[in-house]
Simulated assay, not measured.
Amino acid sequence: MHLHLLQHSPHHGPGRIADWLTSMGHSHTVFHLHAEEAPPSLSDGDGLILLDGPMHVLDDEDYPWLKRERKLIAKALHGSKPLLGIGMGARMIAAELGATVGRGTFAEVGWHEVTLAPESPFDLPERFTAFMWHRDVFALPDDALPLGGSQGSPVQGFAWDAGRALGLLCHLEVTRTDVDELLTHSERPEGSDESPHAQPAESILADGRRFDQLAPLLDRLLSQWIHRAPA
């Protein structure tokens, strides 16, 4: 399979996703929308992955390419190819499905436990720790199943159309290098200073094993997702 990856910011890259695709025999192309690269044609690939970004899903004035991306997402949802969104990418899919997207009560930054929803169609541990970097959240779209929730965000993900379309608020793909990049070059999500769910940089980086523990979770999730709708 050949996957299209849409990147919205120089500091929110694909992380381990790129290496996972290569290791599994899949090819991929990264489209840097933030650098004014045009989004791909859906017909040229076998699946679509939307990465995170710091902007709001309707921030068209500052990011006019968001309109073209929304059209691409709509086509993907009405098609048959696998679609994955992470962070802002998940919020864009949720919005296209008619779900409410907006600012959450608290920012979530750092490492937080996710409890798997009983209805989740994906086989993951009942509890696992994921990396968080957000304030904006989404409601569960109609006809979607929840993946799980955290203390700060009850909806951490959703699966739609039998899991062909998957949205994740949390991050399983990040490496220590990715998080170093965020902490150094990207503004922390709004409200991080006041949030009880936002950790300081030294706590986030204190245990490097956390990053290693994400790898099998990512493998487990992507392996199930990519076979939900073979192209």
Rank of each mutant, 00 (worst) to 15 (best):
P10L: 04
P10Y: 01
H11G: 02
H12P: 03
G15W: 04
A18F: 02
A18C: 03
A18H: 04
A18E: 05
A18P: 15
A18S: 11
D19L: 05
D19V: 00
W20S: 04
W20L: 06
S23Y: 05
M24P: 11
G25V: 04
G25E: 06
S27D: 11
S27P: 14
H28M: 00
F31V: 12
L33W: 09
H34L: 03
H34T: 00
A35E: 15
A35G: 08
E36Q: 05
E36Y: 04
A38L: 12
A38M: 12
A38V: 15
P39E: 11
L42C: 00
L42I: 00
S43T: 14
S43F: 12
D44Y: 07
D44V: 10
D44S: 15
D44K: 11
G45A: 08
G45P: 06
G45M: 13
D46W: 03
D46T: 10
G47E: 09
G47L: 09
G47K: 05
I49Q: 06
I49N: 00
L50P: 03
L50M: 09
L51Y: 12
D52K: 02
G53W: 08
P54H: 00
P54K: 01
M55H: 06
M55N: 03
H56S: 08
L58A: 01
D59P: 13
D60A: 05
D60R: 02
D60C: 13
D62I: 14
D62H: 13
P64K: 13
P64R: 06
L66K: 01
L66W: 00
R68F: 07
R68P: 15
E69F: 07
E69V: 01
E69L: 08
A74G: 15
A74H: 10
H78P: 10
G79Q: 14
G79A: 11
S80L: 14
K81C: 13
K81T: 12
P82A: 11
L83R: 04
L83C: 13
G85I: 01
I86F: 15
I86A: 09
I86H: 12
I86Q: 03
G87L: 12
G87Q: 04
M88A: 10
M88N: 12
A90L: 05
A90R: 08
R91A: 15
M92C: 15
I93N: 00
A94G: 07
A94C: 03
A95L: 09
A95F: 08
A95T: 07
A95D: 06
E96Y: 02
E96I: 05
L97H: 11
G98V: 11
G98Q: 01
G98K: 02
T100E: 08
T100D: 07
V101P: 00
V101T: 13
G102T: 05
R103W: 05
R103K: 07
R103M: 06
R103L: 02
T105N: 06
T105G: 08
T105A: 10
T105W: 06
T105Y: 03
A107P: 14
E108T: 11
E108A: 14
V109G: 01
V109E: 00
G110W: 11
W111C: 05
W111I: 13
W111Q: 06
H112A: 10
H112C: 10
T115R: 03
T115C: 13
T115F: 01
T115P: 11
L116G: 02
L116Q: 09
L116S: 03
L116K: 08
L116H: 13
A117F: 01
P118R: 11
E119W: 03
